[in-house]
């Protein structure tokens, strides 16, 4: 018997909840069939989440799930350009036609890239800093100085995986036109890991202090709003604080989903609820940083 998990038609930070709902209980008692046949679009966040789902199942020692690739040629082609299929075959039995040659895409500033150790972050930051500066300044209208801050935010987001997850993760960086939600181009950093999540990471130091309210949401608040870290070193927790400060300056948004909660610190254009709790469980942690193209009047 296989348990079918439908992938939403459009998979992003919001619709991931529907994918999580489809998982049912965790860990899954049966082999999964993750069905992306009807999916026509996925954000880097969505694709990183699919990889972390496969990774989490593998690390639990459960049977390799089946993954039905999208029927849409456009979706398959785009997913191939992001490097999704190249990594997915490690975690899924992929069924469906996969483009052999991925081709290049100028909107993909960094394809899905594994993060396992600090050295990987050097590679990611160096590559993005080298290739993205022109796009960030010409298309996103960010000042040259802001592109350095962007690379710093990317580095800190990736370090969260290495330092706290207890396992590896994925990062991707992409620009795209956010027609419906913003009417402007955005650059997005998506980071996902199949690790222990914020609650477990902070359990030992924070659970007793917070008491009965301790939950995935409270753990996210501790880390993102109060700069709490599981390490006693007073210099810890500055990475997320630095990201928030950078985003406040450039009208950006950070959203982190861990376990059953999602916390967002957003800009004026964002209509997301700050804290969503009691969501269907999804393994690991998913982080998204969104920076919109700068408008002359918005500065």
């Amino acid at each position: 018997m296989m348990h079918v998990v439908p992938v939403p038609t459009s998979l992003d930070d919001k619709s991931l909840d529907a994918l999580a709902q489809g998982l049912g209980s965790w860990p899954p008692p049966e082999r999964l069939l993750v069905d992306g046949h009807g999916t026509t679009w996925a954000s880097p966040y969505g694709l990183a989440s699919l990889l972390t789902l496969g990774q989490a199942i593998k690390e639990l020692g459960r049977p390799k799930p089946q993954f039905n690739a999208p029927a849409s040629d456009d979706a398959r082609s785009y997913w191939a350009r992001t490097g999704f299929f190249r990594h997915a075959v490690e975690y899924y039995d992929v069924v469906g036609k996969i483009p052999r040659r991925a081709g290049d895409a100028t909107d993909v500033l960094l394809p899905l890239t594994p993060i396992r150790a600090a050295e990987d972050i050097h590679h990611v930051v160096g590559k993005v800093q080298e290739s993205a500066t022109r796009i960030l300044t010409s298309e996103l209208k960010l000042e040259a100085k802001a592109t350095m801050g962007f690379a710093m935010a990317l580095s800190e987001a990736c370090q969260n995986v290495v330092e706290h997850a207890g396992t590896g993760g994925w990062v991707a960086v992409q620009t795209y036109f956010w027609k419906r939600r913003l009417g402007r181009k955005v650059v997005v950093i998506a980071v996902g890991d199949a690790g222990i999540g914020f609650r477990k990471s902070l359990d030992a130091t924070e659970a007793r202090k917070v008491g009965e309210r301790w939950s995935d949401g409270a753990a996210l608040e501790s880390a993102l709003l109060h700069g709490v870290s599981r390490f006693p070193d007073p210099g810890r927790g500055q990475g997320l604080a630095g990201i928030k400060r950078y985003l406040a300056r450039w009208h950006g948004k950070i959203s982190i989903r861990s376990g059953t909660a999602r916390l967002s610190v957003g800009a004026e254009w964002d209509d997301d609820v700050p804290l969503a709790e009691h969501l269907p469980f999804f393994p690991g942690t998913q982080l998204q940083i969104t920076i919109p193209a700068q408008e002359p009047s918005g500065r």
Binding site: A118, E119, I121, H122, H123, V125, G126, Q129, E130, A151, M152, S155, Q159, V162, E163
Partner: peptide, 11 residues
Amino acid sequence: VPTPYCHLVTR
């Protein structure tokens, strides 16, 4: 760090 880049990143 064996990297071609010159960025001081990671703890």
